[in-house]
Design a protein around this nucleic acid. Structure first.
Lengths: 185, 185
DNA sequence: ACCTGAACACCGTTCAAGT
DNA sequence: ACCTGAACACCGTTCAAGT
């Protein structure tokens, strides 16, 4: 890749990240990204074939942090409930920084060929690791996909209603207790 | 209102309902609604100032059914957990018939002046009635708004991923147990 | 009063032409 | 190879002109 192309690519992602954080995915147009980055629309599309693909690149850094968050939460020296809750909070916090990401990743769960497929995998694996770490403390029928959907749902709501942290925590506590509770006979 | 206007209005809502059920809110254009209803675009906008306003009218009938569903579920002669679960299932079932409704109503919760405001009120009151009916069996800090958001989140996920009923039930069971569980000390 | 349909603004995406 | 920017298709919404 030529040096100027590389520079353009990096600049696009940076500009897009800032714009999306400030205004949300839907409110940022591709034209605005191109104009702010000081390039033509064609260049933008040469690097990223669709708006979703650009969004995926913007979220890229997030994927690494997810696994860190799992490790940190699972290593805490507190009861299972608190470790689980900590992970759920970290996750929603990370996703709500990228406005619009929670809804899109959650909607892509299980959809083959979506631009967010890699992120979905990361997210699924993260939750699987949480399930493995907490072992028998969780209800026996929890599945990673299910956790992803439930937490993603909460994150999406928190995201586009811009809820205060307490409101999000309260919802996540309900989920936490639901995940821990034994299945009724 | 003139007879022909009345007829047009009814026809618009009917056509829009069928189209949205079949293809989902986003995939139906206002032009398509007008064309299918056999009227001009201007007429459509004379009756409904925005696409959301039309959607709200399409969902209108749903609002009545919500309260029926609460009554039926609360009158069942079964444990609190089962009554709660029944209501949650009924609610998500109703909302997923109108593709795209769950996400929009949930997103409008607490947003003053949204076109879905009346539906949000109905929905909030319904959940408040559930909370009242189940009284002390629920965790002490549940709030109607919180239930609306959590259930709306699940419904939204179920809706746009078109999940099978079992997957939805499984998620709602987690929520149910979460709502019932006593808050940890 | 109510209807029509061409027109506008905006946005995601493409492509012929340039270096 | 990579870039530019005009152009296209589509969609929500408006409005001048008709009955």
């Amino acid at each position: 890749m030529r040096a100027d192309a590389r520079r353009n690519r990096d600049r696009i992602v940076e500009v897009a990240r800032d714009l999306i954080r400030a205004k949300g995915y839907d409110a940022v147009s591709m034209d605005e990204v191109a104009r702010t980055a000081g390039i033509g629309a064609g260049t933008l599309y040469r690097h990223f074939p669709t708006k979703d693909a650009l969004h995926d690149a913007v979220i890229e850094a997030w994927a690494d942090k997810v696994n860190e968050a799992v490790d940190q939460a699972m290593e805490l020296d507190v009861p299972a409930r608190d470790r689980l809750l900590q992970w759920l909070k970290d996750y929603t916090a990370m996703l709500t920084t990228h406005q619009g990401a929670a809804a899109r990743i959650t909607a892509s769960l299980g959809v083959a060929g979506s631009p967010y497929e890699a992120k979905c995998q990361t997210y699924l694996q993260a939750n699987q690791r949480v399930i493995d770490a907490l072992g028998g403390q969780l209800r026996p029928d929890v599945q990673a996909m299910q956790m992803c959907r439930l937490v993603g749902g909460v994150a999406a709501v928190a995201d586009n209603s811009e809820l205060p942290p307490e409101a999000v925590s309260a919802m996540l506590e309900v989920l936490t207790d639901g995940f821990l509770a034994p299945k009724a006979a």
